[in-house]
């Protein structure tokens, strides 16, 4: 949430810190399923708050308000949630590692080309926005198009495969360079 900056000193608006991992206020992290990571994040970024929330006293005070039975159920539930979150995260990681961004040069009309970029959506990028960025960067037409096999790709006018390769590897750090691939529809490589 990007509202940390706009609070003037005179305003009565309360500034709330949000966890960088699960985006909830840190006091609710224990219900999120990624408690461990959240705790580490808090310790690193707001040690004072960490002290207050994760001290022995605080934990005991939390437990004492619930009956034993309810405690057990809550603990079991939390465990299940944590396991689910962990497995989801692992899956996501794997998906990202295995998915590829393919930059393809397609011949449109003899010496005219378009460049098709597919696979960006696997890296949580909004295709519409990326297309806009491409268009701005390369000063060409750029749009999101449907691919015959299902799914969507970005089509950029002009032969830009090398430029896009550089741009993607440089600007989107969540995409590892090894996962970006240039493919030509024709056998000859374009002169760079």
């Amino acid at each position: 949430m990007a509202d940390v900056a706009d609070g003037a000193s005179a305003s009565p608006a309360k500034q709330v810190i949000y966890c960088g991992i699960c985006s909830l206020p840190p006091e609710y992290c224990e219900f999120g399923g990624t408690t461990k990571k959240c705790e580490e994040w808090l310790q690193k970024n707001h040690p004072a708050m960490h002290e207050r929330l994760y001290s022995q006293d605080a934990i005991e005070a939390n437990l004492s308000t619930l009956s034993l039975d309810a405690q057990k159920r809550a603990a079991k539930d939390a465990e299940k949630k944590a396991a689910k979150a962990a497995s989801a995260a692992a899956k996501e990681e794997e998906r990202k590692a295995s998915s590829k961004v393919i930059i393809k040069r397609v011949e449109r009309n003899k010496r005219k080309y378009v460049t098709e970029v597919s696979g960006l959506e696997a890296f949580d990028l909004d295709l519409k926005k990326v297309a806009k960025d491409f268009g701005k960067k390369f000063a060409t037409g750029s749009s999101v198009t449907k691919v015959p096999g299902g799914g969507e790709a970005i089509t950029v006018q002009g032969d830009l495969s090398d430029d896009i390769y550089d741009y993607v590897t440089e600007n989107y750090e969540q995409i590892p360079e090894d996962n970006v691939e240039c493919v030509e529809d024709k056998k000859k490589k374009p002169a760079s």
Binding site: Q15, V16, T65
Partner: peptide, 25 residues
């Protein structure tokens, strides 16, 4: 809720017990 967090006292408030939090969330 981000707005509520900024001006917590400007809305009618109720409070739930600890046991209910995990269900609400």
């Amino acid at each position: 809720l981000t707005l509520v967090h900024k001006y917590p006292t400007c809305f009618p408030l109720l409070r739930i017990d600890r046991g209910a939090i995990r269900f609400v969330l």
